[in-house]
Design a protein around this nucleic acid. Structure first.
Lengths: 340, 340
DNA sequence: CCGGTAAGTGGGAGCGCTCCCATCCGTGGG
DNA sequence: CCCACGGATGGGAGCGCTCCCACTTACCGG
């Protein structure tokens, strides 16, 4: 470092070459109005000739903005969600920023050192806003950013009431739809393979399950609930437990597709036919989903819309710095395939 | 944007509160020597009291450095390599930067718009150097960056002679080792499932195959070479072709583990025993590898070392701006499991 | 007792840009 | 023919920091 790249021309040099003032060149570079067309062309020629590129540090310093936003992943996101979720969010966020001059920066926060460094980076003004991939309950990052007054949007939430803007899928609603569908299909002994109970998203999906039972007059039985950790293996194990406890089970709602896939295997191993003996519905439908056999009926999370919405909210907060946090819940969609 | 976060204190304000000059505060903030301990403590107290965080734009502007590097992925990397490769590289790069004040920024370049934006970002001085994930032959990005005088290190190379610093695995050597191992095991009709012939990495692995044959006195036969695209499915197809052409085949070297996995399936379908009838060796051994049945003998790419080396070279270039590009080839390792 | 040296410190001079106001020029109406 | 007005333009005043040099002070040896 400390090295200077050679001959990076400055605004002033462009102005000199074009025979105009600094202000005019700045206006041309920033595509601002109020420059005569002939002047604009002269300046553009000078810019091209010198290969001028604006110094972004100077622009930031003078303009009080960075024209960049960060999308932060924690170590946990990194493994837990695997590629499809991550890819889809990143792509939709990227797409949503295409028409802006904003550069998207992905950053990985794996340790306290890295968190600290990132906070200094963000508070230091290198980004105008931060998007947080799903955060864990104990993650101090959202509040650190909020306290620093940085526009921040989270994907998902850590609890029922967040004091940070977030976008989330309608987890409860999606689960409710799934279970309602099972009930309408005449199933009445419906097991649940839930996620880790300390995760809010898992709580919501479980709540949706309960909410669906009530109007149908079916009683909630906690023996029908088994907890998993969103992994395929945990789904397999949970399904086995469930069958042992309730051989009469005629349907299962799994809080993730991976767990549903594990459940499918366990059911096959137990000689149950799907969906004849036991109907199965999953949750997520990340694209491209690894196809199950038979193809899984599931609740689709609107990832593309989530990414897009996060960007919209972030840009709005960057623009206006609203007083209140906003919470957006996006609808899920029940995708009927062959397991229910 | 255009918004100002409230009350961000400046160096000057800290200096005033601590009753010292700007220079002294700067020295404390940057952990520079030449400040009396008592003074240092006073200043640190003032910093804490005001919650001072350095303005990085100002620092960049005055200090001619960004304290950040970018790791660029193109759309192609994104899909082609999937998670394990990507994850391991990112982690090792991250680890290698832990002890520096350098922030790692992952950026995704999917279109010309995004490429242009990134180049402006990089040339604008927001990063001190760039790491490029594997690049394709036609990718103009490396040369754009090189021309801009930005320290740049590529993972892999686009051709035999690159005018950009790169780090690569010894693809030819790894392939040679694999095939030599097969020959030593008494196999002499060894098929190859190669990668796309327009990719240099595929050429190298194929070259290694040929180089191993010669000293063993085995003649190269092009009918033993089938081309794949690194996907499991293409490996399956290639294996079928190979068996049709050469029923007497007694070994296969696949230029990737995915293709080897496909080959394994095809062999099983054809009723061949592995390794008794046909030995199989793959290439990559990305962790965590999806286990094959039987466990695959393969050539391990030293991803961790590659990431670490890339960072070392980049930091060196940032420091000294050497005249010549450097090319580092890291050794692979033949991992013997059950298929050969 | 004094010059000499080193350690510690203060602050001027930018870094290259944006913002904004003063200025200039051309035009149209009175 | 003069003045007022608005669009186009020039450039001063910073933005908050680092770099570096000048300055102060304390302490050393002669």
């Amino acid at each position: 470092m400390g090295r200077q790249r050679p001959g990076t021309p400055t605004l002033e040099e462009v102005a000199a070459l074009a025979g105009v003032g600094r202000g005019t060149v700045s206006r041309v570079v920033n595509n601002a109005a109020g420059v005569r067309d002939s002047t604009r062309r002269t300046v553009q020629r000078a810019i091209a000739e010198l290969g001028y590129v604006p110094n972004l540090a100077a622009r930031s310093l003078a303009g009080h903005r960075a024209d960049a936003v960060a999308l932060v992943m924690t170590e946990t996101d990194w493994r837990l969600f695997g590629e499809p979720f991550f890819t889809e969010i990143v792509h939709s966020v990227g797409d949503a920023l295409t028409d802006t001059p904003v550069q998207l920066l992905l950053t990985l926060v794996r340790s306290d050192t890295e968190r600290q460094r990132f906070v200094e980076y963000a508070r230091g003004g290198r980004v105008d806003g931060v998007l947080l991939m799903s955060v864990h309950a104990e993650d101090p990052l959202p509040d650190m950013l909020a306290k620093a007054g940085l526009p921040t949007v989270m994907l998902g939430r850590r609890s029922g009431d967040e004091s940070v803007t977030y976008v989330d899928a309608d987890n409860a609603g999606g689960a409710r739809d799934a279970v309602t569908h099972l009930l309408k299909g005449g199933r009445d002994t419906i097991g649940v393979i839930g996620g880790p109970p300390d995760m809010y998203v898992a709580q919501c999906r479980l709540r949706g399950y309960r909410e669906a039972l009530e109007p149908a007059g079916v009683e909630f039985r906690s023996s029908l609930v088994v907890e998993g950790d969103f992994s395929e293996e945990s789904g397999h194990r949970a399904m086995r437990d469930l069958l042992a406890r309730h051989p009469e089970l005629d349907a299962v709602f799994a809080a993730s597709d991976s767990m549903a896939a594990g459940a499918l295997n366990a059911l096959r191993a137990a000689g149950r036919r799907v969906p004849e003996d036991v109907a199965v519905i999953g949750f997520d439908d990340f694209q491209p989903a690894r196809p199950t056999d038979p193809p899984l009926t599931t609740v689709r999370q609107p990832l593309e819309a989530i990414g897009r919405t996060m960007v919209r909210l972030l840009l709005e907060e960057m623009e206006e710095s609203p007083a209140a946090w906003r919470h957006v819940i996006l609808p899920t969609e029940l995708v009927l395939r062959d397991t229910a």
